[in-house]
Write a protein that binds this DNA or RNA. Structure first.
Lengths: 187, 187
DNA sequence: TCCTTAAAGCAAACATCTTGGCTTTCGCGA
DNA sequence: TCGCGAAAGCCAAGATGTTTGCTTTAAGGA
């Protein structure tokens, strides 16, 4: 989305201000309380500008969510450790202020708009996992499949965060990862 | 919510009409396009009535979602078969017209309102699974834990439906169930 | 430096949702 | 059957979000 036809000074400033405003408002009030007029006011930008550039709240949130996402930890080749780190990072990403709020907003959005945010999110996660598994293969391990990691690590974490299941912490995230990376572990 | 102080004819009629209208609109347009005025018009009821009785769209959707939910299949005691049936039913429930839409609406709702819908949903699912596991125990099996079923069957199904992961069908649901009920199965 | 024009700003019309005061209906117990 | 009162209906005011036509600003190339 940085590919605008005139990315220079003013547009960039407006975009930055709007992104910051969205993040702040999502954190403060939750994604469903964020309106375009509110964002515009916080960013000291004209509402019309936001309407014309982004069109809708879901589109705006999707863009901000993608930009805001931090990088996953680099895989070392130690499958067990890498998966555990990945799981912990995924949970941290969801649990960070506004993290799950962005997810909620994308989940709630209309079907057409949805694809942009959710598809992108899934693609990124898949790529991260694949990189991790490739790295493990290079190191001579026999890793689980992408689907297994999705089903047994990522999905439970999302599910538990969305439903606010108690006891969903870093240790549990690692536990899920360990269960899929070979020898299970009691807890 | 059926515990109103005057559940007789008119109130009941209004409630039924509103429920029907909500369901229809969710299916037709998606949950995020459903507004109280639209529901009221469809139900041929005064908007003020809906505002006063339900207050907000999330509250209304939560009530409708709970009422609309069909009953899970009765457990037979055959753990493997019961879990597979349960998984397939869960997926069917999510995939039914408007099924995931209700979930989306609840996920998106504000934190306070959310508890009502999501907590209830989780509680019901837990109870269903527990019943199934108890039945299996009676029959002499040694079933997995509630958390295991949640993490490895329910969570992946929700995740996959929300993200529209291809290949998420009844067979896959059963595959997930089988993987957790003892001997895994290739696919 | 100057010119072109993409993008931001402004203001007013517009649509829509929400709320409040009041009246009317009608379920339900006496 | 009658009367009370909970709940539904009506309408108008108010608030909020959205769109539109136009003007102004300032990147970026000539």
């Amino acid at each position: 989305m940085a590919t605008t036809r005139r990315p220079g000074g003013r547009s960039a400033r407006v975009q930055a201000a709007v992104h910051r405003a969205v993040t702040e408002l999502v954190v403060e009030r939750g994604a469903d309380q964020v309106t375009i007029p509110a964002v515009a006011e916080r960013a000291e930008v004209n509402p019309t500008t936001v309407y014309r550039r982004w069109g809708s709240i879901p589109a705006l949130l999707a863009e901000v969510a993608i930009v805001a996402e931090g990088g996953a930890p680099a895989p070392t080749g130690d499958l067990r450790a890498d998966l555990a780190d990945f799981a912990e990072w995924t949970l941290a990403d969801l649990a960070r202020p506004g993290g799950i709020a962005f997810f909620r907003a994308e989940v709630a959005a209309d079907v057409d708009d949805r694809r942009a945010g959710l598809r992108e999110c899934l693609k990124r996660t898949s790529a991260t996992i694949e990189a991790l598994l490739d790295r493990a293969r290079e190191a001579g391990h026999e890793p689980p499949t992408l689907a297994e990691v999705m089903d047994r690590v990522v999905a439970p974490l999302y599910f538990r965060v969305v439903f606010s299941v108690p006891g969903t912490d870093a240790a549990y995230a690692r536990h899920l990862a360990h269960a899929v990376s070979g020898k299970p572990e009691s807890r």
